[in-house]
Design a protein around this nucleic acid. Structure first.
Lengths: 205, 205
DNA sequence: TTAAAATTGTTGCAAATGCAACAGAATTTA
DNA sequence: TAAATTCTGTTGCATTTGCAACAATTTTAA
């Protein structure tokens, strides 16, 4: 990913883009309407958070290095405020969509790279979202699990897969009750569809 | 959307892009890996279809005018073949991502417009997908319905909303059983949360 | 304009799921 | 290294959901 390297090395030549550092626990941005802000996470991890009307913390999305996020990607949302919290130290590139999608007047060398990078990163985002939608569309926990495992398996060219986060987080990702998911995993093992050791899973079909 | 108009009027100058017509019932494209094909639906309607292992027809996604789709947006998927079926007469712009994301060597006037349009359309797509994910993440049918209604309501600045497709399709979109959804709608009416006339819904809270 | 197809509305019942609660293991933090 | 926190694994129970099936209505196509 050449463009990304160029962007990462950027000394702050272009006034339209900011590279900022956020320490763990700090807020990277809030989703304020009509700004069309875009953020590229160069390093670290962050969560998209909302407090629902009961005051419960909802983790809407999780971001890793090379993920792209921002209010530009989110539907208008007057009721609840969304914000992005750094769960590790983060390095972030911030800019407004409308400032960069047209050719830079200064002919800044980063703009061409940025547009190209932007397309690439958004394309990745859409692919991941489609995978997520496909999984969430399944009606039962079993189908969701198998669908998720299948995607991991195809991606890694192997029947042996590793769930890249805790089972608690997996339940959140599949949007199901954790205990019900554990029960279903147990059934899948008992019925011989999978075997499991920690978060390493082997598909037996 | 100026770029879109320019693209629509395009006479086939650029060999890298094709504008094609598809009559109702014909197949626009199949999702073949590693091609990174992108399609822009200029007019008409189409469905993204898969036949599952039982031979049941699954409608994975539905596309309208100005929607963008293609295998470039979809996770690798060796098992089942996906294809896009024109459910009305369609006018489609087809190209390969790798052919257009770099500057056209011929300096073709459509390329600049296309990149700009592409970003805009993909941004829309991501926003819609995020809305969909947010809805699908809700645990109960009631929450899914209210979440969906809320998004429609915010978008139209009104408590009176119109579901833009049949209730059968809505159940598909929310990924729930239709009869269970009808039951839940009835409960929402009985409990005074909404009133309903056909597919016109009024939010009473 | 009639026949066919799709949509809406409804119900009983079985199965799946969420919820609450708890104990033990593993991991992180002070 | 001790204490606190998070994660895993499990269960009973109430609720929600999907499934199957049917009639009535509306829409579409011949």
């Amino acid at each position: 990913m050449d463009d990304l390297d160029l962007i990462k090395d950027m000394s702050n030549d272009c006034v339209k883009m900011q590279k900022k550092f956020f320490s763990k626990g700090s807020i990277i941005t809030t989703y304020i309407e009509k700004r069309r802000q875009i953020c590229i996470l160069l390093s670290g991890k962050a969560d998209l958070i909302r407090y629902d009307f009961n005051g419960n913390k909802d983790i809407i999305d999780r971001f890793n290095a090379n993920d792209i996020f921002g209010e530009a990607f989110y539907p208008v949302n007057t009721n609840n405020e969304l914000f992005v919290l750094a769960t590790e130290d983060c390095e972030v590139l911030l800019f407004l969509y409308d400032d960069v999608h047209v050719k830079c007047k200064n002919n800044c060398k980063f703009h061409a790279s940025l547009i190209s990078l932007l397309l690439e990163l958004i394309l990745n985002k859409v692919v991941h979202q489609n995978a997520r939608i496909e999984i969430l569309s399944k009606r039962t926990i079993r189908e969701k699990l198998l669908s998720y495992f299948s995607i991991l398996s195809v991606k890694s060219f192997s029947k042996n897969i590793t769930v890249p986060f805790s089972l608690t987080t997996l339940a959140d990702y599949l949007s199901v009750d954790r205990s019900a998911m554990m029960r279903e995993i147990k059934s899948l093992i008992d019925e011989g569809f999978i075997s499991k050791n920690g978060n390493k899973i082997r598909l037996l079909y």
